[in-house]
Write a protein that binds this DNA or RNA. Sequence first.
RNA 1: UCCCGCGUAGCUCAGCUGGUAGAGCAGACGGCUGUUAACCGUCGGGUCGCAGGUUCGAGUCCUGCCGCGGGAGCCA
Length: 460
Amino acid sequence: MPRSKSARRRVGMPRLPPQGWSTALAGANFPTMAEVRDLPRHPGESVTVSGWIDALRVHGRVAFLALRDGTGLVQGVVVRSEVPEGLWALARSLTQESSVELTGVVRPDERAPGGHEIAVSELALVGRSEEYPIQPKEHGVEFLLDRRHLWLRSSRQRAGLRVRAEVEQAIHDFFYERDFVRVDTPILTGAIGESAGTLFETDYFGQSAYLAQTGQLYLEAACPAFRKVYCFGPTFRAEKSKTRRHLTEFWMVEPEVAFADSDDNMELQEEFVCHLVRRALERCGDELATLGRDTAALEAVRPPFPRISYTEAVERLRESGSEIEWGRDLGATEESAVSSWFDRPVFVYNYPAGAKAFYMKENPEDPRTVLCNDLLAPEGYGEIIGGSQREDDLERVVARIRADDLPEEAYGWYLDLRRFGTFPHSGFGLGLERTVSWISGRPHVRELVPFPRLLNRLTP
RNA sequence: UCCCGCGUAGCUCAGCUGGUAGAGCAGACGGCUGUUAACCGUCGGGUCGCAGGUUCGAGUCCUGCCGCGGGAGCCA
C-alpha cells in the first residue's frame, strides 16, 4: 500500500533509516534513499527514489513508469500479480509529471533504458499532475516559451542548461586558476555605457538609472587595484533585435588585464575559449549526445586560431565578389563569409575607428584603425567575443567621447583613471548564451538561458 | 524601424481552380505481461486570429489591424 506520510517525510534524508525503526530492521534489505545516477552501483538492493513521472506505459498486467529525479532517468516496473491491488490501481492512474516516491529492488535488464530498472514494491503519490501540457512530440516555439517554467523539464532543455552551468563553472575556474580577482560591477548605473539608445531606463528615487550594458568601465577602475580582474553577470540591451543571436538580458564575462596589449588580449581569448570547449567535451558528453552535437567540430577548436586584420578581410571579401567598402563595419553576411574560410574560431582585428566604441586605443601604425578584435565562432554561430586595448591617453578619450556625442559629464570618474597613473590595458567580453549555443549546437540563444528575455517576452 | 512568411480542435498540421470542418497526438472509457514518443477499439472536442469587403455562397479571394516566426540594421 502507499505509505503516504511516513514516505514523504523521508524525502531529503538520504541513506538514513527512518527514525523510530529498531536497528534490527535496518538490515541489508531495508530500502535506502538513492539518486538515479547511482543505481547501477546497487544491483539487487532495495532502494527508494523520488521524482517525476517522465512517461507512462500501462498494459493489462504490467506498467512501466519512467521516473526522472533530476540526476537521471529510470524505469519502474509494476507487475499486477506481484503487488497489492491498491498499488496497481495507483500506478495505472498516474499521469505525466506527477511526483512520486517509489521503492523496489534494482535489477539489470537489457530491455530497460539505461540497462537497469526497479521492480516496484511500494509507491507513494506526492503530488498529482493534471493534464501536463507539454507532450513528447513537436510543439511550436511560442507555445513552449509561454510554458518555459515547464519546458525546462524536457530532455534537450535539461541538456542545454547543464552545458551552460558547466561552462559557467569553467569560466570561474579559468580565471581563478590564473589569479584574476572577480569584481562584481553594478547593474544599476548612471548614464554610462557604450552608446545611448539601447539602455533600459528605470526610476531611481526621482532620477534616471540605467541597467548596465557592460561592466567594462568599472573593471578598468578595478584594474589598478588587482591587476587582473573579471566580472560575470547579466547585462541589458534595449535593442529591438529579433534574431536567433539576441536577448535583451544576457550574461557576459569580461576580463580586464593591466599592462596587456592587444596581442596579449587575443592570446588570452584563445586560451579561454579552448578551455571552455575542452571542459564541455570532457564533462558534458551525455548532454552533447542528447543534443545531437557533432563533437568532431568541437575537437578541432585548438590553438592557434587564425587571425585576419579587418583590412585583409575586406580585400579578400572584395576578391570573392563582395561590395563591402573599407571603413564600413562587417555585417552578418560578411562575418559568416569570413568564418566559413576556417574550421575554428577566427580573430578579425583592428577595425576602422568609426565603426567601434570610443574607448578603443588608436592604432599607432595606422591611425584610421583601433586596436581591437572580434572573435567569430565557426559553423555560422557568429561573433562571440568583442575585445580591445583601451585608449589610455586622456586627450584622445575625451576627443572620442565628444565625437560620439556621449554625455561627457557621466564619464568624469572614468577619465580620472587616465589622470591618476594611466597604464596600457586590454580586455574583452564573451557572450555566454552565444558561446553555449555554439558549443551545444542549438540554433537559438533563447534555449540556453533558463528564462529568456526577448523582445515582447517578459514572462515567465 | 524595414523586408519575407505564418495564424484552422488542448498540441502539430491537412483542407486543390470559392460549395458549408478533417487527421494524428493529448483527454475519458474499454482491451492487452516487456513497453521504449507502446499498440487496438469507442467517445467528447471548432467564433477557421479580429474587423470590413467581393460573391448566391468565403477556412479559401481582397483591404486593414493584431499576434507569432525568420531575417536586416545594431551588437555579445
